[in-house]
């Protein structure tokens, strides 16, 4: 089938603002949007810039705004879009460096701010810090995050607020707050409870819809809110 791939291009050395460019190409229904981007780059315009690494939905490099929704280009089939006009934009709310490549630093800064590592000052036991299957299941959802930023950059509050740490950072905090082995809740509270923390979430659910790992993002954010409110910190 013939598809039209429209890409929001931006070259910081030439362009004042991003502009749309259209490419016509042959595609199979089972092609991924990532395949189409490669076809354009290899056969039509080698200057096209986008990020990809594993190409199998694990590394989280190729989150893009595809036909109005944040998705991974490597997990989105042409067939599933149900149209032969495909629009691809960079994810929103982060500075665009070139074409579909954005500066992820604000995203990772928020990620680091919640201290996404195990905090436990007790001397490690002889073998391991034991945990029951139930205790492990408590934070299972958050462990699936691949840090692709599809959730954070789908959030209307993140687009305009400028200080909100975003859904991904809260999911990462949740992963450790609800880990029975972790003792760092008090260290994470100043960030999560600050003006840029969980209370900026207004439950628009775009994050939950966008997550390519099907993490119930809003549910996790609400659990963190309740943990703060009911003094579980």
């Amino acid at each position: 089938m013939q598809v039209t791939l429209k890409i929001l291009r931006y070259n910081p050395e030439k362009d004042l603002r991003p502009h749309w460019e259209s490419y016509k190409l042959e595609a199979e229904p089972m092609d991924r949007v990532l395949d189409l981007l490669h076809k354009v780059k290899w056969e039509q315009d080698g200057t096209l810039a986008f990020r990809k690494s594993c190409g199998h939905g694990i590394c989280g490099s190729d989150a893009m705004l595809i036909n109005g929704r944040n998705r991974l280009a490597c997990k989105t089939l042409v067939r599933d879009l149900g149209t032969d006009v495909i629009e691809v934009e960079p994810i929103r709310g982060l500075p665009v460096e070139k074409d579909l490549v954005v500066d992820m630093e604000p995203f990772f800064k928020a990620y680091r701010a919640v201290k996404p590592w195990l905090i436990n000052d007790d001397p490690p036991p002889q073998r391991e810090r034991l945990q029951s299957p139930e205790e492990r299941a408590r934070f299972d959802e958050g462990t699936k995050c691949i840090l692709c930023a599809a959730c954070t950059t789908s959030c209307p509050v993140f687009w305009v607020n400028g200080t909100y740490i975003g859904p991904a950072a809260v999911v990462q905090a949740h992963r450790f707050i609800f880990d029975s082995r972790d003792q760092g809740a008090h260290e994470r509270f100043p960030v999560l409870g600050s003006t840029g923390g969980v209370w900026r979430c207004r439950t628009a659910y775009n994050c939950t819809e966008a997550c390519p790992r099907e993490i119930p993002v809003t549910q996790l954010i609400q659990e963190v809110k309740r943990a703060i409110m009911f003094g579980e910190f």
């Binding site: 929704r69 628009a204 659910y205 819809e209």
Partner: peptide, 9 residues
């Protein structure tokens, strides 16, 4: 316009 669903609207 981002094509969010019910929650966004």
């Amino acid at each position: 316009m981002y094509r969010g669903r019910e929650g966004q609207w």
